[in-house]
């Protein structure tokens, strides 16, 4: 599959429930996470549960669909800003759902997609947005490990490695 996308936003939060903060550049550490993020620091909601969460990604295309009211969810008509979805990286042009088990480059770093992210009711309550859980089912992004660390910035190209 041939595709090429890029990185739009980088967000981190220092601990569970804290507002996400946008970064102009971020340091990715192989096998650990993004410097300053809750899953790098071990202070995330799911930190006590072992899983791959070094970096999480979501497609801007999903946020655009939600803003357009697709799909229609009874009682739910809201838009989700990049700082609200609680994933670390917002991408454009990257088919995240197709990448499980594969490696890809973000700027100078290499990520390996471990599993599709599954939305949680927690975010619905945190943001006071009932219906968001359903709105993110099957498209709430990707959980990745970091194989090669480095510095990333918004605008960096995202390209496939394993065909």
């Amino acid at each position: 599959m041939t595709w090429q996308g890029n990185l739009l936003h980088i967000h981190i939060a220092p601990a569970a429930s804290y507002e996400m903060e946008e970064l102009a550049e971020a340091q990715l550490i192989a096998g650990r996470g993004i410097v300053g993020d809750r899953y790098y620091l071990g202070t995330g909601t799911y930190s006590p549960k072992p899983d791959v969460r070094e970096v999480t990604l979501i497609e801007i295309e999903v946020l655009e669909a939600i803003a357009n009211g697709e799909p229609k969810i009874p009682g739910f008509k809201r838009s989700l800003a990049p700082e609200d979805h609680r994933r670390n990286l917002t991408t454009r042009g990257v088919p995240l759902n197709h990448l499980t088990g594969k490696r890809f480059r973000v700027g100078e770093t290499i990520l390996r997609a471990a599993r599709m992210n599954f939305p949680c009711k927690y975010i619905e309550e945190l943001l006071g947005m009932p219906g968001l859980y359903e709105g993110l089912l099957n498209r709430s992004g990707l959980n990745c490990s970091i194989e090669v660390g480095g510095v990333i910035r918004p605008g960096d190209p995202i390209v496939p490695m394993d065909e």
Binding site: S17, Y18, E19, Y122, E125, L126
Partner: peptide, 9 residues
């Protein structure tokens, strides 16, 4: 009780 977002004010 539901969680609430924490802001650095």
């Amino acid at each position: 009780g539901s969680p609430r977002i924490i802001m650095k004010l």
